Computed example of a mutant assay.
Amino acid sequence: MYDYLRGELTYLSGNGIVVELGGVGYSIVCANPFSYQPLLHRETKIYLYQYVREDAIILYGFKTREERELFIRLLSVSGIGPKNALAVLASGEPDEVIQAIESEDSKYLTRFPGIGKKTAGQIILDLKGKMADFSVDGRASADTVAGNATLDEAVDALKMLGYSEKEINRVVPELKKKNLTAELYVKDALRLLTHA
């Protein structure tokens, strides 16, 4: 399975984007393709989910690992398919959706296309209490540092060192103010994390 793809965003359409890597254009279905407009003709990193069915293999793309994880968890709910899960992601913020699930707010969930009362109840039944490990601290996740590949590499290195998403997100705003090599980003992050 693919984790992410990094390449040039070459095309946007109503239902997805095309990212070119090594001379190959990957067609990726996204919740809100036009949110990628600022990254058009620039290098970008897209987190992927490969969906396989009898008649098709489809790549779904997300700006953050958290969005992808919420998509996967929604797919695990009986009656929810990729189209419904994308509608939830396109229309709501992941942290708001999680809050609605945890507080059993079926009214909030039924505002999404294709989600009726029965399906909202099923989402709550299947996912309530299983979202505690789900961290969406701020919409500027450490996973999405658009246009700064070296900072992305540093964030990946910090994760390998065992730092949590929450800890990393706390220092990323300070790191974004600088233009460093990946190695220096890591050193600066470690300084910030150990003196916090």
Rank of each mutant, 00 (worst) to 15 (best):
I72E: 14
S13G: 09
R139Q: 13
L21R: 14
C30P: 03
E67Y: 09
P82T: 03
T110P: 04
L40D: 02
G129L: 10
V97G: 03
L59H: 00
D126S: 14
Y36E: 02
S78L: 11
L40K: 07
K117W: 01
N179A: 09
L59Q: 01
P113F: 10
K107D: 12
R111G: 15
G23N: 08
M160E: 13
K83V: 08
V24M: 12
E69H: 14
L151Q: 08
D105V: 06
V52I: 15
E165T: 15
K107L: 11
K45V: 07
I28S: 00
T194E: 10
L193E: 03
K107V: 15
R139K: 14
A142P: 12
F62C: 03
Q37P: 02
N15T: 13
D152W: 13
R73I: 07
S164L: 05
A182N: 04
A31F: 04
F71A: 03
S27G: 06
K118G: 05
E153A: 13
D143W: 12
L127E: 11
A132H: 13
L125E: 03
L86G: 01
E8S: 11
E174D: 13
V136F: 15
I115L: 05
G116Y: 05
P82N: 04
T150G: 01
P33D: 02
P113D: 06
R139C: 02
A87E: 09
G22Q: 08
K130M: 11
V19F: 00
D95N: 15
A31M: 07
